[in-house]
């Protein structure tokens, strides 16, 4: 066997051996949209088209009793993936005399969508006719709801309107 062929074979084998355990770093690119949160806003019960911001609102998740940042405008609520509902407490005037809290349960179905090898799956939520259930209370300040988007795919639009 000729020497150059010799050398070529050796080089080729070494390259192939090296490649075997070489793995390109699979990174989920930052900025890839993941599982979306539910975006809600508050509208006037008498005029369901008009946005009506509730005064002094605090939203907290019932299971952990931690509050979700409530500033103004549309609120993003993270939904649970280990069950098909999440309970939130919407409180007006927390800590004051006229405190009024509503225990609201959001019901949904989940559908997972494959992104790629590095990121895996992300969730999408489907809101049905039983999407919002307000537990029986004497003084509910939230009077109704309206589904704007049945599929929660991203956080760019408001999905649910709560009327008060």
């Amino acid at each position: 066997m000729k020497a150059p062929k010799d050398f070529l074979f050796v080089v080729a084998s070494c390259c192939l051996l090296l490649f075997y355990n070489c793995e390109k770093d699979d990174i989920c690119v930052e900025g890839t949209p993941g599982t979306p949160r539910l975006v809600i806003d508050f509208y006037d019960f008498e005029n369901p088209e008009t946005v009506k911001a509730p005064s002094n609102l605090t939203i907290s998740a019932v299971a952990t009793n931690t509050s979700i940042i409530a500033g103004g405008g549309p609120y993003t609520l993270p939904l649970r993936n280990d069950q098909e509902f999440t309970q939130f407490r919407f409180t007006l005037n927390l800590g004051q005399e006229n405190e009024n809290h509503d225990l609201v349960q959001i019901n949904y179905r989940r559908e997972d969508l494959y992104i790629n090898r590095a990121c895996g799956y992300k969730a999408q939520y489907l809101l049905g006719t039983d999407a919002v259930v307000n537990s029986q209370d004497t003084d509910n300040w939230i009077k109704g709801y309206s589904i704007i988007e049945t599929t929660v795919q991203d956080e760019t639009v408001v999905h649910l309107a709560l009327l008060h």
């Binding site: 949209p33 599982t35 998740a61 952990t64 939904l79 992300k122 969730a123």
Partner: peptide, 10 residues
Amino acid sequence: YTLYSTTHFW
């Protein structure tokens, strides 16, 4: 699998 999410509340 675990779901991919950019927020980690739950």
